[in-house]
């Protein structure tokens, strides 16, 4: 386990910034109890964790440390950062563009489908094309995230079966991809 290097930090923040607004700063801002969140890399996975926790986790040997705090994603072998569904709580907190899907669209999305126009309940205004989105149910439960296929204005003119948002990650992955999603020593 180690802190991120400069490059890695950049890669991570670039990725996060696709989904979040300016409030992303708050992730690393000091909290009221004097603690703050730090980024830690352990076996290619990036975790956001409170500093006090990270300090305690140093006593755990590398081979035995499987997870800490919130996992954001992992670095691929080619050095790209891949964001995981486990980052959803953080993205949902700071999301800039949001998309709400109707109840009839929830299951298709959770089974890994893209979001079609017919399933969209609400859509943030002024969302450009190919912009990261966080997907919610109509009662504001975050389900996953993706990338907008059209800008908001364009998608209004779309027919009901047209894709509005490409899925990137959804909660269903907890069941589908349990084997690959998490580190196993």
């Amino acid at each position: 386990m180690r802190p991120l290097t400069e490059e890695e930090t950049q890669a991570v923040f670039k990725k996060l910034a696709e989904y979040t607004g300016a409030s992303l700063k708050n992730i690393i801002a000091p909290q009221e109890d004097g603690d703050r969140n730090v980024f830690r890399l352990s076996q290619n996975r990036v975790y956001v964790v409170r500093l006090s926790m990270a300090n305690l986790a140093t006593s755990i040997a590398r081979d035995n440390l499987l997870s800490l705090g919130t996992c954001l994603g992992k670095f691929t072998k080619s050095g790209k950062f891949r964001i995981h569904i486990t980052a959803l709580p953080i993205l949902a907190e700071h999301a800039r563009h949001k998309l709400w899907i109707r109840p009839n669209g929830v299951m298709p999305f959770l089974y890994g489908g893209n979001i079609v126009k017919a399933h969209v309940g609400r859509f943030s205004e002024d969302c450009p094309e190919h912009q990261g989105l966080v997907v919610y149910t109509m009662d504001d439960v975050p389900l996953g995230f993706g990338v907008s296929a059209r800008s908001t204005a364009e998608s209004r003119r779309l027919d009901p079966t047209g894709v509005v948002c490409f899925r990137q990650a959804d909660c269903g992955e907890y069941l589908r991809d349990e084997d690959t999603l998490f580190q196993s020593g």
Binding site: M53, L56, S67, L68, G69, T86, P89, Y174, E178, G185
Partner: peptide, 21 residues
């Protein structure tokens, strides 16, 4: 432990360190 990590992440728990000793 994999299932454990899955549950921890799914439930939005942030204060857990998972280790295998």
């Amino acid at each position: 432990a994999k299932g454990l990590i899955g549950n921890v992440a799914r439930l939005g728990v942030r204060n857990v360190i998972v280790c295998s000793y």
